[in-house]
């Protein structure tokens, strides 16, 4: 399937709207400094792959963007709107961060579907209760989305009875249901049995092809190279190298990235 997003070379200067701007993000857990000043820009339609070794701070960075984790300092701008922060980095305006979160949708490594709700109920939960979409409309949309991820016959099943791949596809449908401006994926296939990885990657690949803005933390290098138009390599809380996938994977500059790529290959 030809993909529009990955076929386009990234223009040096383009006029697309900014989707996510992260400036000089720092995060410490106690005395452990996990992010040491990370800056990152994603424009509308970008697919940014974030790669790096275990413990390099990939998840922490992603989780700071929607304030699941409280940054220690830095600036985060979503769709041109800066998140108001207290001196300690916590969101200063609960309403604002809740509103911004509804425009970001996160897909977790462990799926995190609500286990007491069926797949359909999971998908309509946020539209109905947070976004106040009329229930009938939300259900119709949820059915479309479940169909799209190949789960239309499982709408009334509970997550615990599904395979990991099915759960993750449902989680993607749940994320799509809020019609997000940006999707955040944190290693969406790492908890899956190898034979189930493909079905989830196929769904994500489709999303990239339709021009969804995505930040994707992944260990699937081949996949990152294929779908991303920008790759960021994190090493010990700093961006060691970044650029178009052809550059980062094809012609890595830093010794650490070279070593990392050879270790995961």
């Amino acid at each position: 399937m030809p993909t529009a997003a990955s076929a386009d070379p990234l223009p040096v200067s383009d006029t697309r709207a900014e989707a996510i701007q992260v400036e000089d993000l720092h995060k410490s857990f106690g005395t452990l400094e996990v992010l040491k000043g990370v800056s990152l820009n994603a424009k509308k339609g970008d697919v940014v792959a974030i790669i790096g070794g275990s413990g390099s701070g990939k998840s922490t960075m992603l989780r700071c963007i929607n304030f699941l984790e409280t940054p220690s300092s830095g600036k985060i701008v979503i769709d041109g709107e800066e998140v108001e922060m207290n001196a300690d980095g916590s969101p200063a305006n609960r309403r604002q961060i809740e509103r911004i979160r509804t425009r970001l949708a996160m897909v977790f490594q462990q799926f995190n579907l609500w286990t007491h709700r069926t797949l359909l109920e999971n998908v309509i939960e946020v539209p109905v209760h947070v976004l106040k979409v009329p229930r009938a409309k939300a259900i119709a949309r949820a059915k479309e989305l479940l169909e799209r991820v190949g789960l239309s016959d499982k709408a009334d099943a509970f997550p615990a009875f599904m395979s990991g791949g099915q759960q993750q596809r449902a989680a993607i449908a749940r994320a799509l249901a809020v019609d997000p401006n940006v999707m955040l994926f944190d290693e969406p296939t790492s908890a899956l049995d190898p034979e189930l990885v493909g079905e989830v990657l196929t769904v994500i690949r489709d999303l990239a092809a339709e021009g969804r803005t995505m930040l994707l933390v992944t260990h699937e290098m081949k996949f990152a190279r294929e779908v991303a138009n920008h790759v960021v390599y994190l090493f010990e809380g700093r961006i060691e190298e970044q650029g178009p996938p052809a550059e980062v994977f094809g012609n890595p500059q830093s010794a650490r990235l070279k070593q990392f790529l050879s270790s995961v290959a």
Binding site: N66, L68, R94, I97, E98, R99, I100, R101, T102, L104, A105, M106, F108, Q110, F111, N112, L113, W114, T115, E125, V126, H129, V130, V178
Partner: peptide
Amino acid sequence: VPPGQIEAARAFGMPPIM
């Protein structure tokens, strides 16, 4: 309750009481 359940709710902008 698995923390991921609550985390998912927070990530989608649910207010604490909800």
